[in-house]
Design a protein around this nucleic acid. Structure first.
Lengths: 190, 190
DNA sequence: CGCGGGTTTGATGATGCTCAAGCCCGGTGG
DNA sequence: CCACCGGGCTTGAGCATCATCAAACCCGCG
């Protein structure tokens, strides 16, 4: 059977069936129930996670004690605190499943072994990171361009199914405002 | 003579003198005077730029006609609109030298040739992108965490020399506020 | 049924923007 | 070498956006 991960690797490389089957041993499959935690503040982010099914989020706790969601990752996205992952230093973030999910974890040291055995995978992650960074550059642009209300409508229009999946208080902090204000916006436009 | 670019490549790879000397032919050195433009809105971002000396910025023009600076790049940083660079589609951004600068441009198609001849360079750019993305993740965190005033002080404390180098109206839009407000903050704390 | 997490509501107020005007200063041409 | 010009920085008044806080409400789950 073809997992999303396999298809994804295929899409960005020219590795053949046998190679892909073989390199899967570097990844650790994980079944997570809702609210399961993959990384906690103060820990080192040892894994880079691929979402096979479900949804992860990265968040942190601000000085007032409220959760601030930084990033979501749905099917076919990779997620990690790359600062912590790169330097293997403690992370300020939490990573958590917000639905029943299955993910693949690639451990930091295994990544290097993977690259030695399958050099094409360097290209794969290069492209993944380029896309992630590009998305981030664009997101920054939107944050400047639009008022908070416009940002919400923009997201709601582009990812309607996604809006349904995540609790509003997570979405609010991701978009950079309070749950109360999000509630107001929704009322205004319904 | 050892350019910053050569040193930088050395730092992230194990390529020897001869290799590095040889791979330089893939890069195009450019001398730019102040305000020279490397990319304009609507063009395709064909190059990934390394700042050898000086300072670049990426910006766009918002619907009210004012420039919004997205990113700066000083010595030893790479800069490109990676969405446009990756997909070779028109960019919404401008890239401009804000000082007399020397940069190296790596053309999109040459990048692939470079990777074929020097596979280690894939690792190099993987690491560059990982760092850039990590910095971006952290920047997002700061934007949420701090008030605009705090953001300014944070930057001013960490990069005092940088504050001097760039005009305030560029810095203001980079930090996400108006020149007027930046002026007010500066007065308050002087 | 009751508990508790999440959402809504509304009053109040701070943060940070807009607009318009004046000022400072460095560059350019006479 | 001086005068002028203009881009950028400052100032201040008025205002919009959005946060804060406290309370009520809703609804799924034990």
């Amino acid at each position: 059977m073809e997992t999303n991960l396999v298809q994804h690797i295929r899409k960005f490389t020219t590795l053949d069936d046998q190679d892909v089957a073989s390199l899967l041993r570097f990844f650790e499959p994980l079944s997570l129930k809702k609210k399961a935690c993959l990384l906690e503040e103060g820990e080192i982010c040892r894994y880079n996670y691929f979402v096979e099914k479900g949804c992860l989020r990265m968040y942190y706790i601000d000085d007032k004690g409220t959760e601030q969601t930084n990033q979501f990752a749905i099917e076919n996205w990779w997620l990690a605190d790359y600062m912590s992952f790169d330097k293997q230093t403690p992370s300020p973030f939490y990573i958590q499943a917000i639905e029943k999910s299955t993910v693949y974890g690639l451990e930091h040291s295994k990544q290097n072994q993977l690259f030695e055995e399958f050099p094409q995978m360097e290209r794969y992650f290069l492209l993944i990171l380029q896309r992630a960074y590009a998305a981030s550059q664009l997101r920054m642009k939107y944050m400047h361009d639009f008022s908070k209300e416009e940002i919400y409508h923009h997201i709601a229009a582009r990812f309607p199914e996604f809006i349904q999946r995540v609790p509003q208080y997570m979405l609010a902090s991701y978009l950079g405002f309070t749950p109360e204000y999000l509630s107001e916006i929704r009322k205004k436009t319904s």
